[in-house]
């Protein structure tokens, strides 16, 4: 009888923690502030939902799910590009790093573009800020998230310029990594906002 165990998990085995903090101290102050801020905003969502069950039950049906899904795909794929950017700078492949950061920017810019068309579609269908409590909460949280993504995009532009100027190396890439972890934080928050408005009833 064989003792061989076949693993079907796509994940690698656990790796021992090193105590390392990716990026730099400043970005983590920002990240935890953003997480606390959005926890409070989620509190607004839960309270509004508790007081207006019917509005939150019917609300998602009128939104364009395809817009929410497209934004999720764009953010996750842009995040993947930043994972590769960090990977390639560690391997001292600086041209590849620049390519991945630019890829992350192009995909990230797709978010405000999709949002623009989504809001235009919403308004054409009578879904504006006065369409009811569900849509007021939806605009409040999603536009707030868009503001944070815009900051992340500005960070990515800065990092792209520094990468192009050869200012990162395998020994010093904390700025690049800081932009990447902030960018991934906006992913984590969107992964909550998406089901709140497009899926949950």
């Amino acid at each position: 009888m064989s003792d061989t165990v076949i693993s079907v998990s796509p994940l690698p085995p656990p790796v021992a923690a090193t105590g390392r903090v990716p990026g730099n101290a400043g970005i983590w102050v920002g990240i935890f502030c953003v997480l606390v801020e959005f926890l409070l905003l989620f509190g607004v969502y839960f309270v509004a939902k508790a007081h207006h069950r019917e509005a939150f039950l019917a609300g998602p049906d009128k939104l364009a799910t395809v817009a929410g899904v497209t934004i999720t795909f764009l953010l996750l794929t842009s995040g993947y590009c930043m994972v590769k950017a960090v990977e390639t700078i560690r391997a001292d492949r600086r041209r590849a790093t620049l390519g991945w950061v630019l890829g992350a920017i192009v995909l990230g810019l797709g978010y405000p573009l999709v949002k623009f068309f989504e809001i235009r579609w919403n308004v054409a269908h009578g879904i504006d800020g006065e369409a009811g409590i569900f849509y007021t909460t939806y605009y409040y949280l999603t536009l707030n998230h868009l503001v944070h993504v815009s900051w992340g995009l500005l960070g990515l532009f800065w990092v792209a310029a520094r990468t192009a100027l050869g200012m990162y190396s395998p020994r010093d890439y904390s700025g690049l990594e800081a932009a990447a972890v902030y960018w991934h934080t906006t992913d984590v928050i969107w992964l909550v906002i998406f089901p709140f408005f497009y899926v949950l009833r």
Partner: peptide
């Protein structure tokens, strides 16, 4: 939905942000 938020969040935090090898307190 709760499961999807938890699993996807876990994947981004541990694998995109590389927190599985980072400071346990931050993680």
């Amino acid at each position: 939905v709760a499961g999807l938020i938890g699993v996807k969040g876990h994947l981004v935090i541990d694998h995109y942000m590389e927190m599985r090898t980072a400071s346990p307190r931050f993680r």
